[in-house]
Amino acid sequence: MNLSKQTYKKYAEATAEKTPCLKNCIKAFLIGGFICTLAQGFFNLYKYLGIEEETVKSLVPVTLIFIAVLLTGLDIFDDIAKHAGAGTLVPITGFANAVASPAIDTKAEGFILGVGAKIFTIAGSVILYGILSGAIYGVIYYIVKLIMG
C-alpha cells in the first residue's frame, strides 16, 4: 500500500469514534458530586452521633473505602465506574478500587507472589508520586517559611 505511517496514523485517529467528552464530564460531575455529598452526609451523621471532629475526619474516608471495596468485591463497582469515569476515580473510592481489584485478581497466585506482590500494580504510582510530591511540597513549604520568617 502506498501509505506512509504518519498518514495512516493521522487517518486512523481522525476516523476513530470520539469519546463523548461532554456526556462523560456531566456523568462524572453528577456521580462524583453524589459521592462527595454522601461523604458529607456521613460527616454530619458521625458528628451528630457525638464523635469528635478529628476522628470523624478519618472515619469518613474509611467508610467510603469500605463501600468502594465492598462494591468491587460484589462486581458492582466497575459497572458504576464505567459511567462515572473520573466521578469514581478521583475521590478515594477510585484508590480503594485500584487496590482491591488486583488483590481479587491475584488471589489464586498465592498471598506472597500474588496478592502481596501485585496489590499495588495500579495504586503503586499513586502512592509513590503522592509521597514524592508531598515531600517536595514539604521542602518548599519549609524554605518559604524560613524566608518569610
Binding site: E17, P20, N24, G73, D78, A81, A84, N97, S101, I104
Partner: peptide, 12 residues
C-alpha cells in the same frame, strides 16, 4: 487491567 478495576473504555 484487573477485571474489577473501574475504568472507562474508549469507543474504539
Amino acid at each position: 487491567y484487573p477485571i474489577e478495576y473501574g475504568g472507562q473504555r474508549t469507543p474504539t
